[in-house]
Design a protein around this nucleic acid. Sequence first.
DNA 1: CTGTGGTATTTTAGGCTTGAAACATGCCGG
DNA 2: CCGGCATGTTTCAAGCCTAAAATACCACAG
Lengths: 165, 165
Amino acid sequence: MSGADDIELDAETRLASDHRGELRLWLRLLTCATLIEGEVRGRLRERFDVTLPRFDLMAQLEKSPDGLTLGDLSRRMMVSNGNITGLVERLVDSGHIVRMPHATDRRVSYVRLTEAGRTEFAKMAAQHGDWIAQMFSGLNAEEQRTLLRLLGQLKQSVRARSEPA
Amino acid sequence: MSGADDIELDAETRLASDHRGELRLWLRLLTCATLIEGEVRGRLRERFDVTLPRFDLMAQLEKSPDGLTLGDLSRRMMVSNGNITGLVERLVDSGHIVRMPHATDRRVSYVRLTEAGRTEFAKMAAQHGDWIAQMFSGLNAEEQRTLLRLLGQLKQSVRARSEPA
DNA sequence: CTGTGGTATTTTAGGCTTGAAACATGCCGG
DNA sequence: CCGGCATGTTTCAAGCCTAAAATACCACAG
């Protein structure tokens, strides 16, 4: 690909390869994500002395009371396998989660919240929801719906053009 | 703003503290950012053997031909000071950028692209623009405008509710 | 001058993250 | 049974990132 006969400047000012609009949009999206993430990270650390990746992992487990394998976690959190190994190790050390062997397949290890982990997570999640809601409160219900829809489209668009697996 | 009379009609299903909609929106925003970032990171590594943070730093310098201080970089890239120190060190080692002392203030150090750095960056930036444009191509011009506007609102909303400095 | 408070950068300790290679098992055709 | 390929997890080296403390310097009041 990239053939691009961008030699000719089409119409008047805009070259065939002028992607400023999309770059601007991407930059703004990234700024929003970075701002929100930074805010959440700081508050979790201050008020609960927990890191964002740990919180995210616990959130995944909360949604799956029967436990998840490390591979499940890796896919759902969209991070590498090796990353999960370390995260799980630290959360086991702190008593928030436990490992359980798979009944028959000795390769896989399930992981789930402990009682203490679930209790702790519930407190954090409640606050977390409030923080997020507050940060999005500058958009009314319809604007939120529109944003959700457009981001859904974007997600599909990105997926379609990245890993056509 | 924020008024949100969510009292009405939450009689049965929706509690006052139900922030599922906002959480869903945040999750989707984060997914989009993660997907795009991962895609860009992978391609930069494969085709140019460069990391995303290095690319980002060079992009900032490209926009400021007269150079930037480490503090400028830290603020614009929204990362910590210490992070910039290490990033700059590696980019100096690889010959992409150079440090220049401030004329009178010996605390500050300016940094700018070398000729080689600028040339290398130009190649990367052209590709980068194409990748981004392609990933956003599932949205038409109007949808992109709307998304840009809503993200702008979100950005303001987050800023207003985080650091009222 | 000289202390005092502020700004720019670096250092430090710890944790997160990746991609690739190594391990450990499971599965299956022959 | 057994070799070979696939799958799940860990290890490894390198780099990214943060918050906080330390360092270096400037400016300015006295």
